[in-house]
Each structure stands twice: as structure tokens, then as C-alpha cells.
Design a binder for these strands. Structure first.
Length: 415
RNA sequence: GUGGGCGUAGCUCAAUUGGUUAGAGCACCUGGUUGUGGCCCAGGAGGCUGGGGGUUCAAGUCCCCUCGCUCACCCCA
């Protein structure tokens, strides 16, 4: 019986990994320009952390977490909870009142895999803690937007506001009334949602439900003055930065902690998965997790697998790996030995050097060099040893010259 | 958890309505006269046809079970 990777767990093999590296490189550069600091977080946390932050009754907590029941620990299904835990644990709010942090890594949810959805998947997560400013909301969306642009991906931005504990309950009541008036024409799932999570009825995909909900009251018309102003400023900011967006009053969030601004970067190219990145504001969460009162927060997560799928869909998405500067060809015991030592020295001087250790013929080694995409080949055999000079062949230009078998001399030409 | 589609070499796919030792391309290895890559040519290696059972003189092909992959629902990045 062959052992295979678990369902929903994937290897990222050479050939694919280059695209991942490219994504991370572009993203890190961007996060840096927006003045975010990296934080690295553990994968295991107390189960309690996720139950409290994500919400006891969400699908994630109820049935999708990888939990070691006996040890009461869980593999993180998302990053925000861990990040806030670390923020509180280390008193980061004391060092600097506004923290701008990002983290990159694997998340785990026991779901049935499908396109753009795995059990171990990877997210890049960005959070700003300690600022209520609408500029932060705008800036985060602008950064997301810039990332897609720099990766040459086309997605659209949708935004909404979910209100706050002051205005949402009133809206919720009105929505429930609206839903109950037509409960009979809604799907079974929506009937269930009408009591458990009425806001979710808004983004049901069943056409019948959509039609029924078309005239549903909008949260945007029920925002309290504070939320209303805040959301207005967010939009003004987006306009000032020339960020295109669309208002989507049906957009809600799956995690309990969100309030006010929520947003999604969506695409139609990933099958059933529309959201490539999504997030929003969560002003009460830090306090809920035992942190200081009145610590606002906002953040969003980017699904890396989804980015990769989009990047792969583009024809010209070939990312080349680092070229090999030199392929060392050794002939005979002595020549191979000399080449081996030279190769090591050159690597110490920052050159990328490849060498074959399978005792192939000169022709065989030349083929390997060609496949490796080597810029140069250095041939060292008995004749070369006798003369103290190796043959350095330029593989791109088809010329070759003699070079003294001294590291510095070879390095001079490789530069 | 529920439903649909699909399982033949590392990859992409063939195999005449069940019929010899299951083939091809790509990739891989070795050669094409002494020590020079790419293109070309020749040769080689690589499959218990996902697994198990059944029908039959005969099964990759038909039937049943099982496992896996995949897409979708739910939910979500």
C-alpha cells in the first residue's frame, strides 16, 4: 500500500514552487512599502481561542477544525485569532499604539476539497490594530488592489458595511421581519438561517431566495451616525486613490467578529470560489480575547492557492528559477576532484554552481549542463590539469576559452 | 455530511462493438567511434490497466463492491 498525501493536503513541487516564491516576493515587497511588520505565529493554539473569536456556532468551529480533543488544542483555521492573541500576550499595544502586522502560512480546515479549496491552505494575512481611522480601511483595500495589479491579475473589489453593536441589532430585527413575511418561498437552508444567522440569507445563492431578498432592507440605510460617517469616508478615500469598487449590500461575513467595513476581492475565474481575498473591521475582538478595551482592528486574508490558480491561468506565467552560473565538468578522478574543490570555492563567492556526480561522459555532462540552463561550463580533465588551465565554455554564445584553474580567475569571467 | 464526473507508464492520452507478449508522444537513461550541450537518429528502462470479487474459453473493455481523484452543494480565502 503506497502512502499518499492526505485528502486536501498538497505538495508544492519544483516547477510549481517558483510561482509561490514569486507571489511571496511581490507581496512581501508590497507589505514592506506599506510599512507592515512580519509576525510569525504558531500553528497550534488552545481550542478556546478560536471558539471565542470566530464564534461557537460558525461552521468552522462547529465541524471544520482539526482538534486534538485530549489536549484541547487546535490547528489554526485562520490567522487573525492567533495574531491578536500574540498582540495581547506581548503587550504590543504598549510599545506602539497602532500596530501594522502581516503573517504568511498554512491554515487548516476539515472541509471537502474542491477547486481553490484545500484542507491545508495558505493565507497571507494583514492586520492593523489600534486605529479606528477610515483611512486604514481605505489603505488596506488600496494595498490589496495594488497587489493584484503588480501580479497582473484582474479582480474586482466589493465593499459593504455591517454596522456595529449599536445599529446592527435594530437592522437585524427588521431583516428578520422581512424574512418571516416570505419564509415559505425561501429554501430550506434559508429557513434555518432565518433564526441562526439571518444576515446569511442575504447572500444565499439559490435564485428563488435571491429574488425574494432583492427588496430586503439594506444595512446601509440603518447605520448609526458613527458607522455612516465612517463608511462614507472609506468610500471617499477609495475615490481619492482611484480605486474602483462596487457597493454590495448583500455581502456578509462568515466569521462572527466582523463589524463596519467588510470587503472582498472577487473573481469569476475560480469556479465556485469567488473570493480571492476578504476581510473587514473587527473593533470589539481584541477586548473579547482579553485585550485592552476599545482597541479597534481591521484586516484581511488572501488565499494563496487562489492567487496561484489565477496566476497559472495566464499563459505567460512562467517564472524562471535562478539560472546556474557555472556547470562544472570533471573528467577522470583527478579532474573531477579539482573541479569539485573549485565548485565549492565558487559557491562561497555567491555563484550558483552545479555539478554531476554520476560519472557521466563528457557528452553526458554537457547535456546535464544544457538542461540546467548553465551560462558557462568549465571542463577540467587530465589535459587541463597538465596545462593548469581549464576550458571555460560560454553556453549561450557558443564560444570557449582557456582559463587558469584558480578560483579568482574563473570568478572574474563569471561576473 | 450529500450529489455528479473520472481512474491505463512520471505527465498527456491510445488500445477495432470482450480476442495474441497493453501502445504512442513528452520526460528519463545509454549510444551515434578516443574529450563538447541544443536539432536529428538508434536503442533502453518504465504499467499486477487504483484495489478486490464476479461473468466468460478469453476482461483495460461487462457487472458488483471498495479506495482514490475531481467538480458542485453547505461553508469559506
Amino acid at each position: 500500500m503506497k502512502i499518499k498525501a492526505l485528502k486536501g493536503f498538497k505538495d508544492i513541487v519544483p516547477g510549481d514552487v517558483e510561482l509561490w516564491q514569486h507571489l511571496e516576493k511581490v507581496a512581501r515587497s508590497l507589505f514592506d512599502r506599506f510599512n507592515f511588520a512580519e509576525i510569525r505565529l504558531p500553528i497550534l493554539e488552545e481550542t478556546e481561542l478560536f471558539a471565542r473569536s470566530i464564534g461557537e456556532t460558525t461552521d468552522i468551529v462547529e465541524k471544520e477544525m482539526y482538534t486534538f480533543v485530549d489536549k484541547k488544542v487546535t490547528m489554526r483555521p485562520e490567522a487573525t485569532a492567533s495574531l491578536l492573541r500574540a498582540y495581547i500576550e506581548h503587550g504590543l499595544y504598549v510599545q506602539k499604539p497602532v500596530q501594522r502586522l502581516f503573517t504568511i502560512g498554512p491554515m487548516f480546515r476539515h472541509e471537502r476539497p474542491q477547486k481553490g479549496r484545500l484542507r491545508q491552505f495558505h493565507q497571507m494575512d494583514v492586520e492593523v490594530l489600534g486605529s479606528e481611522s477610515s483611512r486604514v480601511d481605505t489603505e488596506l483595500m488600496a494595498m490589496g488592489s495594488m497587489l493584484f495589479k503588480e501580479l497582473d491579475l484582474v479582480v474586482s473589489l466589493e465593499i459593504n458595511s455591517l454596522g456595529c453593536p449599536a445599529c446592527r441589532p435594530g437592522y437585524r430585527q427588521e431583516l428578520v421581519r422581512f424574512i418571516n413575511d416570505r419564509i415559505d418561498s425561501l429554501c430550506a437552508d434559508c429557513k434555518r438561517r432565518s433564526t441562526s444567522n439571518p444576515l446569511r440569507v442575504l447572500d444565499c445563492k439559490v435564485p428563488g431566495c435571491r429574488e425574494q431578498m432583492l427588496e430586503a432592507p439594506s444595512i446601509l440605510e440603518h447605520l448609526c451616525p458613527g458607522c455612516k460617517t465612517h463608511f462614507h469616508q472609506v468610500q471617499t478615500g477609495l475615490q481619492q486613490l482611484g480605486i474602483e469598487y462596487r457597493l454590495n449590500k448583500f455581502m456578509v461575513r462568515g466569521l462572527d467578529y466582523y463589524c463596519r467595513t467588510t470587503f472582498e476581492f472577487i473573481t469569476g475565474d475560480l469556479g465556485a470560489q469567488a473570493a480571492v481575498a476578504a476581510g473587514g473591521r473587527y473593533d470589539g475582538l481584541v477586548e473579547t480575547l482579553g485585550g485592552p478595551k476599545n482597541t479597534p482592528g481591521i484586516g484581511f486574508a488572501m488565499g494563496m492557492e487562489r492567487f496561484i490558480l489565477l496566476m497559472q491561468q495566464k499563459k505567460e506565467s512562467e517564472i524562471k528559477k535562478q539560472p546556474v552560473d557555472l556547470f562544472m565538468v570533471g573528467l577522470g578522478e583527478k579532474g573531477t576532484e579539482t573541479g569539485f574543490v573549485l565548485a565549492h570555492a565558487l559557491r562561497g563567492m555567491q555563484f550558483t554552481v552545479a555539478m554531476d556526480h554520476e560519472g557521466r561522459s563528457l557528452k553526458g555532462q554537457m547535456k546535464q549542463a544544457n538542461k540546467a540552463g548553465a551560462r558557462y561550463v568549465l571542463i577540467v580533465g587530465d589535459d587541463e590539469l597538465a596545462a593548469g588551465k581549464g576550458i571555460l565554455r560560454n553556453m549561450k554564445e557558443d564560444g570557449q576559452q582557456e582559463v587558469a584553474l584558480v578560483v579568482e580567475k574563473v570568478a572574474e569571467i563569471l561576473i
